[in-house]
Design a protein around this nucleic acid. Structure first.
Length: 880
RNA sequence: GGGCGUAUAGCUCAGCUGGCUAGAGCGCCACGUUGACAUCGUGGAGGUCACAGGUUCGAGUCCUGUUACGCCCACCA
């Protein structure tokens, strides 16, 4: 029998148990067991190029609480770990750490090695695509190690034999298979069309990655002439797009502009003739009621342009600077090409923001407004603040430019996707609304191609015809058997490498997929969809997707899209949404605000169990203030478990020299029966809470019940359990203590895995089987209390507590110790309450040190809100 | 502009389908070393449950409106 330690060293226990769990593989998924006894988690793969954050500790703990409960239910758990390393965040970090930049035209340099000692001002070094990707891999492996260390320490019960990275060969294979399946189903298409474009990263972005930011700007009022006489004014924040104006529109019912419909307007400065047309989207209330349509100022322009048969005047380049344009020909026809050209000469090459200022100046200087009178610009541009679309990871506003991109058809599936969302249980339920409003607001198909490098390539080549032109209309798709492929280094079947880029040969698609195109497949990556039908059937659809609410429109949404497209299925039955960590000022903690607390020192200072306790107190979906005091409460609870266990097991050792604890049948004393009744209730409540994924409520129930056990039951039962004589009263006490401890340790095990495992190992752990660890031990159920009768009086426990508390109060008020004897105690109350009290009075009297014959029970009326009215007379001396 | 959420002791939060004479922990005050626990124990003082109406025998709990904060969404002229 192991000696019970006097002190608890959390850090030592954490190391010891991590190792033990690893060795015994209690977190591993068993592929032999069936789907119905399996619980599958779609673990969020963290972005490893981000920093470690208390937010990780918070939300990953939430998942682990649910998982640990399910494991105790006996479920075969599939809880893997993935690393999200593909994509822009990694590229950006690599660029910063190593001071390099990818230049895809360069050939790989075998002699080149990355350096971290780049100085600040040193210009970025251009490296080949292959070298760039190699460095991305080096860095993500380091980052993944740091995350794994934290997660292991945090006690996440992850199956570490089952990990993946979103850039690894397996994930690339699944991603490419997904793409090809969508091609086969006609759900993906390629088109050359205006798309949202980030001018810094020089890549297309999707609607989900776009956010509005309130930015300062200027409102310009510009006069347009109407052919045949007349003029009107438009208002715009983007005068630099004047040369890209293709039409002027007003609302069809707007009387002010009705006479102009069908006529032609002439743009100032550039002298372009553009039609004046009615358009429903024009709002008579806004601006002057008439506005210019440019290629392309915003999504409305794109939308409207698509409906009309109008030309494209692309003036903004991929870098956000104005392109050279020749006026007087093609779409850039002008009444005065010379003047237009000279004006444009001032703007060409300028970034849009710069060009905006300059064109305003030109419009103000130009004395030839409509009719040759006055300036085209009316007054000084007015300073305003307005929302501007940005790529969420970008600095400068998005532009709409025409490029060739891959899109997944989602706009035609809104109803199906809403229906899928309704089949999934959201926790909390109101989070479903976020999903629904996102689906309802979709206005673009999903652009999945990115002009980047560290990502999953499209498994596609294109034929090059005899004239050397790339035939995007003649794609060559990779066969499933050869996936994953990199079309820039691999050769399509039937071709040889020397045909690359040659007339009659082929060329690889240079783009990579949107990172979400892969992340949306985390269930399929885990289940080996398209590769292993048996495994897939055992893991898909999954049980639960844990995630945070800001990525409902990306991760949750896209995952639902993919599951629908591939198999007409939901990806999981439940989504559980964690809230955010707020700093004490109620601001969201984020790296950019500089208010992030790193998790390492928290774990050192407050112990893992203490930190997990803090996370577990936050209900799903609820943002939580970062409050260091709460860590202390958790640590205190762990200490209490340690000490209470020491007491209980010492009592058992003393009472049961043979090591055989009296069975449940031995429990017979009224207070002990009352305790068991409370255990029954706590178990039922905690179970109900966990079934609803409400781990916080389960914790609260377990914690409150446990403290009450310590503060009241243990104090009341001590004299009996310490008794030298081995009578049925002592046996009842010891059996009840053991049953309670077995119950509480398991109720608290999901929250505080280290301390519960530690004390479980002292006396309760079986040599083998489920009860070898508290974490595989069966979750407590009502049947465990069978054989223990219900107490005769429902309120016995509460009666004992109330009288005990009153006696303690009297002693405290009299500044006496709690052992001070009581010479006389008169208790008044209702007859049934007195009966309940009488049954447990033996324990109360012992705990209160009540003199023999000092008790008087008197039927009568207590004061309001109380069960009893008591008169307490303390003894004159400590000896009674 | 639309939608969602939150507002309960100084602080962090519980209060399920209405019965509360509103709870817990921390903090604060006082007391106590009793043989699990001084990284402790015991007791106490703290709230017109954001505001205004309404439904009801009865509302922190339901309805309506208002305010504050947070989040999500929205074509930015």
């Amino acid at each position: 029998m192991r000696e019970i330690p006097k002190k608890y060293d959390p850090a030592e226990a954490e190391r010891r148990w991590q190792e033990s769990w690893e060795t015994s593989r209690i977190h591993a998924w068993d592929p032999a067991r069936g789907r119905d006894e399996t619980f599958v988690v779609d673990t969020p793969p963290p972005t490893v190029s981000g920093s470690l954050h208390v937010g990780h500790v918070f939300s990953y703990t939430h998942q682990d609480l649910i998982v640990r409960y399910q494991r105790m239910l006996g479920k075969n758990i599939s809880y893997p770990m993935g690393w999200d390393d593909n994509g822009l965040p990694t590229e950006r970090r690599v660029q910063n750490v190593f001071g390099i930049r990818c230049e895809p035209t360069l050939a790989p340099d075998p002699a080149w090695e990355p350096r971290r000692d780049k100085k600040k001002g040193e210009p970025a070094e251009d490296v080949s695509r292959a070298d760039f990707i190699r460095v991305c891999e080096i860095l993500t492996q380091e980052d993944e190690k740091a995350f794994e260390d934290l997660f292991r320490r945090l006690g996440l019960s992850i199956d570490w034999s089952s990990t993946y990275a979103t850039i690894d060969a397996h994930s690339r294979r699944i991603s490419q298979a997904s793409f090809l399946d969508m091609v086969a189903k006609g759900e993906v298409y390629q088109t050359e069309a205006p798309t949202m474009w980030d001018v810094d990263f020089r890549t297309a972005v999707a609607q989900a990655e776009v956010e509005d930011r309130e930015k300062g700007g200027h409102m310009h009022v510009i006069r347009f002439a109407v052919e045949g006489g007349g003029e009107f004014r438009i208002m715009t924040t983007r005068p630099e797009l004047l040369a890209a104006c293709i039409a002027v529109v007003a609302h069809p019912d707007d009387e002010r502009f009705r006479p102009y419909f069908g006529k032609t307007a002439v743009t100032p400065l550039f002298g372009a003739e553009v039609p004046i047309l009615p358009a429903e989207h024009a709002d008579p209330e806004k601006g002057t009621g008439i506005l210019m349509v440019c290629t392309f100022g915003d999504a409305t322009d794109v939308e409207w342009w698509k409906q009309q048969d109008l030309p494209v005047k692309q003036v903004v380049g991929l870098d956000g600077c104005l392109l050279p344009v020749t006026f007087g020909e093609g779409p850039f026809a002008s009444r005065d090409p010379e003047r237009a050209q000279s004006a444009w000469a001032e703007l060409t090459g300028l970034y849009v923001k710069k060009a905006r200022q300059r064109v305003a100046e030109l419009l103000a200087e130009d004395g030839t407004g409509p009719g040759g009178e006055g300036a085209a610009l009316v007054g000084a541009p007015e300073e305003i603040s307005h929302p501007v679309k940005h790529y969420e990871k970008g600095e400068r506003p998005l532009e709409f430019v025409t490029t060739r991109q891959w899109f997944v058809r989602i706009l035609d599936k809104k109803d199906d996707l809403l229906e899928q969302g309704r089949k999934i249980a959201w926790h909390p339920d109101y989070m479903r609304k976020r999903y629904e409003s996102w689906v309802e607001g979709l206005n673009q198909d999903w652009c999945i191609s990115r002009q980047r490098y560290f990502g999953v390539p499209f498994p596609v080549w294109y034929e090059i015809d005899e004239n050397g032109a790339t035939r995007h209309d003649r794609p060559i798709h990779a066969e499933a058997a050869i996936l994953p492929v990199d079309p820039l280094s691999d050769v399509p079947t039937g071709y040889t490498e020397d045909q690359r880029g040659k007339p009659g040969g082929f060329t690889g698609d240079p783009d990579v997929m949107d990172t979400w195109a892969t992340s949306s497949l985390t269930p399929q990556i885990q289940s080996h969809w398209s590769r292993d039908a048996g495994r897939h059937a055992k893991l898909f659809p999954m049980d639960v997707r844990p995630q945070s609410h800001e990525i409902i429109r990306t991760w949750a949404f896209y995952t639902i899209v993919k599951a629908w497209l591939h198999e007409r299925e939901i990806p999981w039955k439940h989504v559980v949404i964690s809230g955010w960590i707020l700093d004490p000022d109620r601001k969201k903690m984020s790296k950019s605000k500089g208010n992030v607390v790193t998790p390492g020192h928290l774990l050192d200072q407050h112990s893992v169990d203490g930190v997990r306790y803090w996370a577990a107190r936050a209900r799903l979906g609820q943002d939580t203030a970062f409050d260091e005091k709460v860590f202390g409460i958790g640590k205190k609870l762990a200490t209490k478990i340690f000490n209470a266990s020491r007491f209980v097991f010492t009592q058992i050792d003393n009472a049961c020299g043979d090591g055989v604890v009296p069975g449940r049948g031995a429990i017979g004393c009224p207070l002990d029966l009352a305790l068991v009744e409370r255990l029954r209730r706590a178990v039922a409540q905690a179970t109900r809470a966990f079934e609803a994924f409400d781990y916080a409520a389960a914790l609260q129930v377990a914690e409150e019940s446990f403290w009450s056990f310590c503060d009241h039951y243990v104090e009341l039962v001590k004299v009996r359990s310490y008794a030298a004589e081995d009578g049925h009263e002592r046996r009842s006490a010891v059996a009840a203590l053991q049953l309670a401890m077995r119950t509480y340790l398991r109720l608290l095990a999901p929250f505080l895995p280290y301390i519960t495992e530690e004390v479980w190992s002292w006396r309760l752990a079986a040599p083998e089987g489920r009860e070898a660890s508290v974490h595989t031990a069966p979750w407590p159920v009502a049947a465990e209390f069978d054989g223990v009768p219900a107490p005769a009086h429902a309120a016995g426990f509460e009666a004992a507590v109330e009288v005990t508390t009153k006696i303690r109060g009297a002693k405290t008020a009299a500044q006496k110790s709690l052992r001070w004897p009581v010479s006389r105690l008169v208790v008044r109350g209702a007859a049934e309450d007195l009966a309940a009290l009488e049954a447990v009075m033996g324990d109360v009297a012992e705990a209160a040190n009540l003199a023999a014959g000092a008790l008087e029970l008197v039927p009568g009326e207590p004061s309001p809100g109380d069960r009893f009215a008591v008169e307490i007379t303390l003894a004159e001396t400590a000896e009674g």
